[in-house]
Design a protein around this nucleic acid. Sequence first.
DNA 1: CTGTTAGCGCTTTCAC
DNA 2: GTGAAAGCGCTAACAG
Lengths: 336, 336
Amino acid sequence: MAVTLRDVARAADVSIATASRALAGSPLTNHATQRHVVQVAAAIGYRTNTMARALKTKRSRLIGLTVHNLENASFRVLAATVQTRMQTLGYQVILSISSDDAEQERNILQTLVDHGVDGLIAVPTGANAAQLLAMEHADIPVICAVRRVEGAGLESVLAADMDGAYAGTQHLLTLGHRRIGLIVGPSETTSGKERLAGYKRAMQEAGLSVDPALVQAGRYAPETGVAAGNALLAMAEPPTAVFVANHESSVGMLRVVSERGLAVPDALSLLFYEDSPWFEWQRPAISVVDSGAVEMAHLIVDRLMQRLGGVANSGREYRVGARLIERASCQALAAT
Amino acid sequence: MAVTLRDVARAADVSIATASRALAGSPLTNHATQRHVVQVAAAIGYRTNTMARALKTKRSRLIGLTVHNLENASFRVLAATVQTRMQTLGYQVILSISSDDAEQERNILQTLVDHGVDGLIAVPTGANAAQLLAMEHADIPVICAVRRVEGAGLESVLAADMDGAYAGTQHLLTLGHRRIGLIVGPSETTSGKERLAGYKRAMQEAGLSVDPALVQAGRYAPETGVAAGNALLAMAEPPTAVFVANHESSVGMLRVVSERGLAVPDALSLLFYEDSPWFEWQRPAISVVDSGAVEMAHLIVDRLMQRLGGVANSGREYRVGARLIERASCQALAAT
DNA sequence: CTGTTAGCGCTTTCAC
DNA sequence: GTGAAAGCGCTAACAG
């Protein structure tokens, strides 16, 4: 059997209550006994039983983290960063993968509540607003990450997708490009919608009309990249630059470019979205609009810690600014 | 306050013990009362408090999972697969990232024990054998994944790296290649050592001597790929095929090939290790020796469930066979 | 088959 | 400042 507080108390010749206080560093303890107890505890290898403590205090020092998957770079970085930081803050994270499925998410949330998590960081599917709200109501702070839950008043930290797409498009515009292809996510998704809006805004501000044939929306998958890329490059008057604002389809686009033997950036400028180690090592290295997954993760942890510390739900939405990383895949359009 | 077993008992007009049994589906319960209790419990929204149960039963239905990072494809797949399957089996997973650091691993293991995990799946650093053994001793089964802990007698499921490298090399040999470059991991790592051994065995069986200049060992990082790739291709008599058995350096090698303008597979055959979506979408699609991360993950879960079910530690080492996936990057060497 | 009872190991009033 | 005692919500003997 493991050594319990009772053993510590006995060994230190104090009451179990005093032992508890001493270990908790309570201010109502004699400094000398305090040190003594701590020392004895260490000597006999005492470890406080988290289950017992959780049962008593209703604080498990566990937090839940749900993501759609671990393949997407943002989610992966989120998972790694959140777990690493929470660990140093004395919390453990229970990871769950929802596959962006509402039903699965529902089960996960229930289980997480059952396990008494103190807080939740969720990349939500968007479909379980009521349940998320119930958690908040049960004093379990929830922070939405990357995606938002419409009208639930939950704190969320998101990427500044509209600004990012705007900045990316503008970069291409500044380089002299006029026919700029866009490959983007489905318009049902927030990021798909917002990135498209950013692109349109930049185009319009530049006095350009948006050619519908130039914007290709599709699932976040490599296949989208090849279909959209081919559609774009097969046009009678193809774009001189393509902005792939759909991370997963980047590979697909890369394949199309290689199959068509197009030289980047001479024959075609390429700009991707969300950085990945691959892009930097690619030849030519790919310029990207990075959405700041690491920074988002940090902000998320900061927000959760505030909430865990007792700060009320601000219901606020935070945005982490995108950043343009110029590498070698975009070139000024040669003057005609 | 949440609804407790006491509330269920009261509402169903039975004792708290009977309620407990009924909910647990104990065979010592009248079928009618059983159903009644279950029904009442559902009606009033009862959820068993896992902390209380854990305190009593010493079973938390939590398992620990430690990986070096989430970037490596094998670890990532392991994490995703393990969590998904364990969830369906009624367990939650506490994820921890060790960064392949012995000290961090030590802290993590301690914390996991403190949280009362029922079992552990670890990609070990190899440095904390004693602690892992102590866990086994404390009736917490541990399964080592991907890496082994030397002489600890822990159950491990590993990739068949020697066989994989052998098969890969042989594939190239069969294609007529004689000068085959190898980029491999550090010889301090099991996989580095074993893959090198597999390569050597294949070469020797083919009656070829191993040219030391043809084998380049280095860290699992892109940089290794460019350094090693350049070293190989700058040789007076460069290899006609390169086997990159160091996953992380694949990108680096790809860059070198592209910078040198080498046509794959015409001028150089390329074979990678551990599959990644990128390889399939690359043009030409890259052939790989896949180490079967998904299969490993499943076997790991199976083993852990056995152990959790009471089966004793077999101390056995399992190997999941590698599989050659032929795509378009390897070509028969043109007859001279 | 069901109820009573005794804790699991800890925190936290409440007295002293 | 310290101790005694009362549970947190649950399971598991032990009786009946």
